[in-house]
Design a binder for these strands. Structure first.
Length: 266
DNA sequence: ATGGTAGGTGGCCTA
């Protein structure tokens, strides 16, 4: 199974680019974040033409996540499961996670809240959101299951996952509570399969800010991730980052994130 | 120390 995660920063703007990329890369499953589309505005037919089923969870304006699959798409579920509500303080009205079973794997496409700033209420929302993700994992799965959570986590797990840790003093994405929330997912049993494959290598990023020429200066962050349960992670054959997709090409303007693709012998 | 850019929206917010 060839599985891709990609924060497209508006599927409305990016659709031609995404369709072209699908034809070139031929993923079995493509998980998107930041579609910024209302539920009814999702271009389901465009993906169906290429042989893919899809499940979108959108609210328009902001957020929006999708799973697009040519290896089946069963038991879709939008948002967090109701039975984990009691484990957290609040319902989540934002369209940030969608689940489906594709090719025998229980998959989630997730767009973790950004956090904005440490003193912003959105930061504590981010931490609670991650807590609830862990709670749902615990409530519904065991580590022996084939479970994969992919998406934009808005967390750089280690210092080498940003271009210069000193530039992040007092900033979100690298704080201890965020990294603790990340570790809680890893402690449950999920594996960061990019890190599994690339060991100690740093300087490999999935996101570059549009501002200040960050991409051209190679100043990025590794914040998009593929987390797999042990039975799936063991079957990783390769994982690759399409950095070229971050470049402008002719008519195409890029997302600020690059697609990350893992292949599993499934 | 600030701003730089991109996208959606509607007379700024989010990233």
């Amino acid at each position: 199974m060839k599985l891709t995660t990609w924060n497209v920063n508006s599927l409305n703007v990016r659709l031609p680019y995404v369709l072209e990329w699908i034809e070139l890369a031929q993923p079995d499953v493509l998980c998107l974040q930041e579609t910024k589309l209302a539920q009814e505005a999702f271009p389901e037919a465009e993906f169906a033409t290429l042989g893919y089923e899809s499940q979108h969870y959108g609210q328009g304006r902001w957020n929006g996540v999708a799973i697009i699959s040519k290896v089946g798409l069963e038991n879709p579920s939008l948002g967090f499961a109701p039975d984990t509500l009691q484990l957290c303080e609040e319902a989540d009205g934002e369209a940030r996670i969608v689940w489906a079973t594709c090719g025998g794997v229980r998959l989630a496409s997730a767009y973790v809240p950004n956090g904005r700033a440490i003193d912003n209420p959105h930061y504590s929302y981010k931490l609670r959101w991650l807590q609830r993700l862990r709670a749902q994992l615990e409530a519904q799965h065991t580590v022996a299951d084939d479970v994969v959570i992919v998406g934009d986590f808005n967390i750089a797990p280690e210092d080498r996952d940003v271009w210069n840790i000193d530039a992040f003093e007092g900033k979100t994405h690298v704080t201890e509570p965020e990294r603790d929330s990340w570790m809680a997912l890893c402690d449950w049993g999920l594996k960061d399969v990019f890190r599994q494959r690339y060991g100690d290598i740093g300087g490999l990023y999935t996101y570059w800010d549009y501002q200040a020429g960050r991409f051209h200066k190679r100043e990025g962050m590794r914040i998009d991730h593929i987390l797999a349960s042990p039975p799936v992670a063991q079957r990783l054959t390769w994982i690759t980052l399409d950095r070229n997709a971050r470049k402008s090409r002719g008519e195409h303007k890029p997302s600020d994130h690059a697609p990350l693709t893992a292949n599993f012998a499934l």
